[in-house]
Design a protein around this nucleic acid. Structure first.
Lengths: 256, 256
DNA sequence: CTCGAATTCAATGCATGCAATCTAGTTTTG
DNA sequence: CAAAACTAGATTGCATGCATTGAATTCGAG
């Protein structure tokens, strides 16, 4: 209706653009769990025809964000707390494997330098007595790169793919569970803890302590679980920072 | 134009049928690595229009079987030996996690009975002094169900999804690396070893020995790695049993 | 004879039309 | 008044047409 032909000048294909925008909409909680995802309204909303939308649906279904309706079409999925918890546990196992691999294979000088640069970046982000918004953003950015780098250094494509797939679920990614406590006072405390874990992991990796590096990576994701748990206790405040909280069901049911 | 509308009476959708058939074609080595996968010939070959084929491509690309060509369209992927090895290692880690979870959560009576039934089925398949074709098929069937059951008992949907995704890669699935030695004399030896590992895993799980169960599951996939390695040494005989061997590149390059 | 450039052909990406199917609303009957 | 059946509307699944873009072939020049 509103002729959204803005950003039509984007050089990439419709298919890629629709996929990204639709995934963003979903993760922003634009659709309620169980809601029918009709092709035509979404196509109009994104300024494309039904074909790229349908393509995007196929991908999003693989990613686990939408479900195929038995009657045809797609339906917004609901996520239980257990599912998110389980996905975080899977991430812990996979990142633990990555850390162990990196420790066993050893770091080149360049790799080590990159990791230490990220550690310093984290130091700076957490330097002051108070955590600023910019410092927080810097830390999140550093955190993402740290986790990506570990996977890259592990040199296992299947492992990277598995983590990437897992991270598509809401709240399962490394950065997803950090933001919720940024404004509260103890947010900095949590970041100091995770940052210390990062430093320990680098130390363990550099000293070829594979088992320790693995254990640290597994323990590392427990912070994400704790943060998610506390977000559950204050849903109304958490939903403002993380709109995808809408996708979580209260009870134990997957939206069927 | 030759209108292959056989099996058109299948009740399922074109999309699902094309996806399954195309995946089968790929895993049977119908396309050479790097080969351009044109929509029209494939659509004609499968008796559908280009639309379902395109949909299937999107899914297969998520599964990692085909690549998007930078110029547009899709290209058959090549797999290096390292990629397969890495995928098997990932499966080991994930199945190790599953075994540990089952051990920690405990088995119900029914679960235990199911596992023991599979163990007995394996005993019978390997009973005779010689391994028959039927016995081999029974063992493969049992093996698949064993691994599926462990994942199911783990009760972690994200974990199941990760394994499922990983298994889409050729040779990465649990059953994929068993068949190659069926005809040779030492095939039975290998199956006896893996069967013993199954039994040990069930024992460890029943006794809540999570770490042992995990270690056994990780070690379990090493047999798959060894089998894959020996298949490399006799490529011409292996390619007859496993046509997907064609998809493996000799050198270290991914088909680019 | 070889290399380069222009042209022609084919294939993709996307939009849309059409038939089958599901949904919702309304009417009718017990 | 309630429940079931029928009808009308809308939506999906699929096929296909069209324009744009990449690839290959052929022609020409050095």
């Amino acid at each position: 209706m509103n002729a959204p032909d803005s950003s039509r000048s984007s050089a990439q294909s419709q298919q890629a653009r629709v996929l990204v925008q639709l995934r963003d909409l979903i993760l922003k909680g634009a659709f309620a769990p169980g809601e029918r995802l009709a092709e035509i309204p979404i196509a109009e909303r994104l300024g494309a025809s039904r074909t790229p939308v349908r393509l995007a649906f196929a991908t999003l279904e693989q990613e686990g964000l939408v479900q195929i309706s038995p009657t045809g079409g797609y339906v917004m999925r609901a996520f239980t707390r257990k599912e998110i918890d389980d996905a975080i546990a899977v991430r812990g196992t996979l990142e633990g494997m990555a850390a162990r691999l990196v420790a066993e294979n050893g770091l080149t000088r360049g790799m080590s330098a990159e990791l230490h640069a990220l550690l310093r970046q984290g130091d700076e982000a957490l330097a002051g007595p108070e955590l600023t918004i910019d410092g927080y953003a810097d830390y999140v950015e550093m955190n993402n790169r740290f986790h990506d780098l570990l996977l890259e250094f592990a040199g296992n494509a299947a492992l990277s793919r598995a983590v990437e797939m897992n991270n598509h679920l809401p709240f399962a990614a490394a950065s997803a569970t950090l933001p919720m406590h940024s404004s509260t006072g103890d947010g900095r405390q949590w970041l100091l803890i995770t940052h210390h874990q990062h430093r320990s992991m680098v130390y363990a990796i550099e000293h070829r302590e594979g088992t320790r590096a693995q254990a640290l990576a597994i323990e590392h994701v427990e912070v994400a679980r704790l943060n998610l748990r506390s977000a559950y206790e204050e849903p109304q405040s958490a939903i403002e920072v993380m709109p995808a909280m809408r996708l979580l069901t209260r009870g134990g049911r997957t939206g069927v």
